[in-house]
């Protein structure tokens, strides 16, 4: 990542836009469609699996849905997006097992686990989604003017 750059307001252009061309529209649809299939398959695996904490399973499904619907249509290669989705799910799987281990060792009271897990889940979901978006912006988009 490059360091933070600033621009004097006197040189400012208007609301920055992405430069686009028509061919990209088709890529977006293909990427989105591919992503939705991936997300559906992953969600099915999560739902079928008995190893998942209920809250983490829900967090992962929401993560997949938001990630695919908003990241996959952006500029950038399908490989990068698929890799980011895969990494996100791997983090989710590890997080789940960490939680299950903590649960079996009774490190945290059950009530506290139930109450805090959605918050903790969203912390990593939002953080990872933000970093992925930042990565996509850096690699795919540029300002006009």
């Amino acid at each position: 990542m490059t360091s933070e750059e600033t621009k004097p307001v006197d040189d400012a252009t208007f609301a920055p836009l992405l430069t686009l061309n028509d061919r990209k529209q088709n890529y977006r649809k293909i990427h989105l469609f591919s992503g939705l299939i991936c997300a559906a398959v992953i969600s099915m695996i999560i739902l079928i699996s008995t190893d998942f904490n209920y809250n983490i399973a829900l967090a992962l499904i929401v993560f997949n849905f938001i990630f695919v619907s908003l990241i996959f249509p952006l500029d950038g290669s399908l490989k990068k997006k698929a890799a980011l989705l895969a990494i996100g799910n791997i983090i989710g799987f590890f997080w789940n097992y960490l939680f299950l281990i903590a649960s079996s060792l009774e490190i945290m009271p059950h009530m506290l686990q139930v109450l805090l897990s959605p918050f903790l889940n969203l912390l990593w979901v939002v953080s990872y989604w933000s970093l992925s978006l930042s990565f996509m912006t850096h690699s795919g988009a540029h300002r006009e003017g």
């Binding site: 609301a15 933000s130 978006l133 988009a141």
Partner: peptide, 25 residues
Amino acid sequence: PFFEVGIGTYLDGRSRASWLMPLLL
């Protein structure tokens, strides 16, 4: 919401701004 802010930063071409989004909590 966070995804709205995130897409806004993307549309503005701001690759670093979204790093702070977890702090919106």
